[in-house]
């Protein structure tokens, strides 16, 4: 669905590249996570893929269209939800969706249905300018579904949303993905990436450091640990043990046999910990 080869981009058109030698592919029906801290090159890459930025160097194909020669028709297949809400504040929620649906040449979804889906039922006649930040974000998200996109670009889709709404948004993404929609997810939130993505790419300083599935990354880079809290000589003690190393396994058996266990959890390395391990950098 997306093919990127040797992509370079410089805002100043010099050798200070925001994105350099980026190559990857996204298969149809996949949820592909593009992860990295602010300024890593995520938005630049996404901007080029969606035609918001001009392709300077490299080969990019999106939904079967060469981005260099892209036409407005390409956008009939694409949906884009922006990190920063960008709706007409003087138009009502319904008018916003009604207007944008008329810009597509394919069958579109009913605004009323979409508003209900994102939890804005009954708010259709209110001007978007009166919405809270979260409501505007949901309206922006709803707009990205208008044309039943085959390829869905989502930029930080749950940022600023309360946990219940964020969970609903994640469910919508999962549901549409099951119907065959390909998702290109840009985020610095490793939890949502871990939960949704089939594969992730770690990008830092404009370069992709690694691409794999969260499961493979955990197997490859994560340590399997058990965290135990037990009582020893009347005091609470907390320790972590490897489930792989013999020495740790024996010590764990000893503790279970001889001490009063208060809590015991298996602990996997998070995607964030793996990101830090691989790139040497945090996600902020």
């Amino acid at each position: 669905m997306i093919t990127v080869q040797n992509l370079y981009h410089s805002y100043n058109k010099d050798d200070r590249y925001a994105v350099k030698n980026v190559s990857f592919e996204v298969q149809k029906g996949e949820i592909f996570g593009f992860l990295g801290p602010s300024g890593a090159g995520k938005s630049t890459t996404q901007g080029i893929l969606t035609g918001l930025l001009q392709l300077q160097q490299g080969e990019v194909s999106v939904a079967g269209y060469d981005v260099k020669r892209s036409s407005p028709e390409m956008f009939n297949k694409i949906g884009m939800s922006f990190e920063q809400s960008n709706v007409y504040s003087k138009l009502t929620a319904k008018e916003n969706l009604q207007f944008y649906r008329k810009l597509f040449d394919v069958e579109t979804r009913e605004p009323k249905e979409l508003l209900k889906l994102v939890g804005l039922e009954g708010k259709g006649d209110i001007q978007a300018g009166e919405f809270s930040k979260g409501m505007k974000h949901r309206l922006t998200f709803a707009r990205s579904m208008l044309n039943n996109p085959e390829l869905w670009f989502l930029d930080e889709p749950t940022t600023g949303l309360d946990p219940a709404i964020a969970a609903e948004i994640k469910d919508i993404i999962k549901r549409d993905n099951k119907k065959g929609v390909t998702v290109f997810l840009t985020t610095h939130n490793m939890f949502i990436a871990e939960e949704l993505c089939d594969r992730v790419a770690f990008i830092i300083d404009g370069e992709i450091k690694l691409i794999d599935s969260p499961r493979n990354l955990k197997l490859q880079y994560g340590e399997k640990l058990v965290e135990v809290e037990y009582i020893e000589n009347g005091k609470s003690v907390r320790e972590k043990f490897s489930t792989v190393l013999d020495k740790d396994k024996k010590r764990l058996q000893d503790i279970i046999g001889n001490y009063e266990i208060q809590t015991m959890h298996t602990k996997e390395a998070t995607l964030e910990e793996i990101f830090i391990k691989v790139t040497g950098r945090g996600l902020v």
Partner: peptide, 14 residues
């Protein structure tokens, strides 16, 4: 300022 131009740019309009 409202960013709506970006939304227009990713629609099938010219």
């Amino acid at each position: 300022k409202e960013g709506v131009i970006k939304a227009y740019a990713v629609s099938a309009a010219s």
